[in-house]
């Protein structure tokens, strides 16, 4: 039972990053854009973990991925709080309709 080739992990990470980038660029709803950012962060984590296999003593890649997960959780919490406040103010969460800072 041979382990999985790490090249495939890198390939999946690249594909996931590109899909996340497409979601961020194309979607109009702010929450879906946030989901795209989460997908991109996950792609980065896959890359970090794939390279961390070759460092079993210090696993620096996994540690960095752990901190990335924690910071992503904090980021999404703050972003959703701001989004709820924006929705209260403008009555919309569509990014194209948010053209002014104050209305």
């Amino acid at each position: 039972m041979q382990p999985v080739d790490s090249f495939l992990f890198l390939l999946v990470g690249a594909a996931l990053f590109c899909i996340g980038l497409t979601v961020v660029v194309l979607k109009r709803h702010a929450i879906v854009v946030l989901m795209g950012i989460e997908l991109m962060l996950n792609a980065v984590n896959i890359n970090l973990v794939a390279f961390s296999q070759y460092d079993p003593d210090r696993i620096q890649g996994q540690m960095l991925a752990l901190f990335v997960i924690i910071v992503a959780a904090a980021e999404s919490a703050v972003a959703l709080a701001i989004l709820i406040q924006v929705y209260r103010h403008f009555r919309t969460a569509q990014l194209d309709e948010l053209t002014e800072l104050n209305r």
Partner: peptide, 13 residues
């Protein structure tokens, strides 16, 4: 993604 982490020996992650 969690499953991929397990396959890359990152069970805690």
């Amino acid at each position: 993604t969690a499953g991929l982490f397990v396959l890359a020996s990152a069970d805690f992650l």
